[in-house]
Design a protein around this nucleic acid. Structure first.
Length: 435
RNA sequence: GACCCCUUCGUCUAGUGGCCUAGGACUCCAGGUUUUCAUCCUGGCAACACGGGUUCGAGUCCCGUAGGGGUCGCCA
């Protein structure tokens, strides 16, 4: 039988990072087995399930490039079917009506647990058993006439022909009940697998109040979708060898449920950042440039394309996230850049620096050609003749022309900036800090 | 509290009884790349939760203890 997995979130506006990881695992499993991956929108919470929230869900799926088979099923469209099924269970005596009181809303429909132990083999955790006496009957239709999650979820999984339910650990207790429901409904019980949860930096479950709990947060921070998917896939799964940076194809090829971890994993922003850097390096130059131009535009920086390309080349290998780009290159596009106060006081505002910069300026101004090799040779010669040492010459120059003490190799920076700008910037820095 | 589940370096993990004096990756630290650095290279620190078994032999199997998590809604 062809495998069918699903992602069944309730659209609440933002897609939780833990939920999307579940989606990724479902997607990987379906693709690995040559099966199908479908989407179901559990939109029964009318208040929160707005068109915007549903749009955000699709947008996230698309951004992460998790392709879905067929059209999504909207749970609200299935309400009558859910109710009909409850009626059937009632007729068969597998459910009963009762006024449980308390809220005083009248009678609800309650599913009768079969009174036998429930056992299933979890694709990740192995054999799971729950004794009959530890399970209770549960409500499947509220006294206001609306179906409860358990009923709707199971019925829709049957409707969509789901063969493998891969969901979070928090559903294991539900699974025992759901299996009883499948059986009462006369439906084939699918395979169940429960993924461990991911925890935050403090080792606690990710709550919505933690920062970085939603996919959008990572997008804003400049992570690439492929890197995020790769990182999340490895958070609780491994291919069994030492591979970490993997293409989608490689992950799909290697993915199995057996290789999924059964204990919780802690999200590590540093490792994600590293991995994202790996993906940034691998980006074709054209793609990288396109991203850079986009970032410049967002930052309100006007860039002349030919010049900008040269700048991008320079910072290419140092960029870790998309968000790094604008701050890293902004000084190339304006002479009104900020000076790092610490660098200024530590390296620029020191005895002799004014004199050194004056000499360097004179040398650079007199150079017949301002290319990389020329400035390189000229400054090396100067260092040697003056006996000052590189540490006393290069950092002040760098800070003067860029405002910071870190960045790409200095000579290419000077070359890209051009003589006019370099001289102007040295004058500007001297006037500002050494006058 | 009851019921389910989990436990290898700080973190993600490899490991399915001998190949483990436990491997890789991230982080961190040190050195190098005769200037900086968020790049690159080299090296280093660092773990089988604990206690009992089983076995010639246990990170790997069993039991217990401790710690952690999940669930106990007419939420999903």
């Amino acid at each position: 039988m062809k495998v069918r997995t699903r992602f069944a979130p309730s659209p609440t506006g933002k897609v939780h990072i833990g939920n999307i990881r579940v989606a990724i695992y479902n997607w990987l499993f379906a693709r690995h087995t040559g099966g199908e991956f479908v989407l179901r929108v559990e939109d029964t919470d009318i208040e929160r399930s707005t068109p915007e929230a549903i749009h955000a869900l699709f947008d996230t799926m698309e951004w992460l490039n998790l392709d879905v088979d067929g059209e999504p099923l909207y749970q609200t469209s299935r309400q009558q079917a859910h109710l009909d099924a409850a009626e059937t269970l009632l007729e068969k005596g597998l459910a009963y009506k009762e006024d449980k009181g308390g809220t005083g809303q009248g009678e609800c429909v309650i599913f009768r647990m079969p009174g036998t132990d429930v056992t299933f083999v979890d694709g990740i955790k192995g054999k799971m058993t729950k004794k009959a006496e530890n399970m209770q009957d549960f409500v499947i239709v509220r006294s206001n006439g609306t179906p409860v999650f358990h009923l709707a979820n199971v019925l829709d999984d049957i409707e969509q022909g789901i063969t493998h339910v891969i969901r979070g650990d928090d559903h294991v207790e539900n699974t025992f009940r759901h299996i009883a429901l499948y059986e009462a409904l006369g439906a084939e019980v699918p395979n169940f697998s429960h993924l461990p949860m991911i925890v935050n930096h403090q080792g606690k479950p990710y709550s919505k109040r933690d920062g970085d709990a939603f996919v959008g947060d990572y997008r804003e921070k400049g992570f690439l979708p492929d890197a995020l998917v790769n990182y999340l896939a490895l958070l609780g799964w491994s291919p069994g060898d030492d591979r970490e940076v993997m293409t989608r194809e490689e992950m799909v090829e290697a993915f199995t449920l057996e290789r999924c971890q059964s204990s919780a994993a802690q999200f590590d922003m540093k490792k994600l950042t590293w991995m994202n850097g790996e993906y940034m390096q691998k980006l074709p130059m054209d793609d990288f440039s396109a991203i850079c131009f986009g970032e410049l535009e967002k930052a309100g920086i006007d860039a002349e394309p030919e010049y900008a390309e040269k700048v991008f080349e320079l910072v290419r290998e140092r960029v870790r996230t998309v968000a790094d780009i604008a701050p890293m290159v902004s000084y190339f596009f304006t002479d009104d850049y900020e000076y790092d106060e610490k660098a200024v006081s530590k390296k620029l505002q020191k005895d002799g620096v004014a004199e050194t910069l004056a000499q360097v300026r004179a040398i650079l101004e007199a150079l017949p050609s301002f290319d990389m090799a020329s400035t390189d040779k000229a400054l090396h010669d100067f260092v040697e003749q003056s006996g000052l040492g590189f540490g006393a010459v290069m950092p002040p120059v760098r800070i003067a022309v860029s405002g910071t003490q870190s960045g790409p190799d200095l000579f290419p920076v000077l070359a890209v900036l051009g003589r006019e700008q370099v001289l102007k910037r040295i004058d500007q820095a001297v006037a500002r800090y050494l006058a």
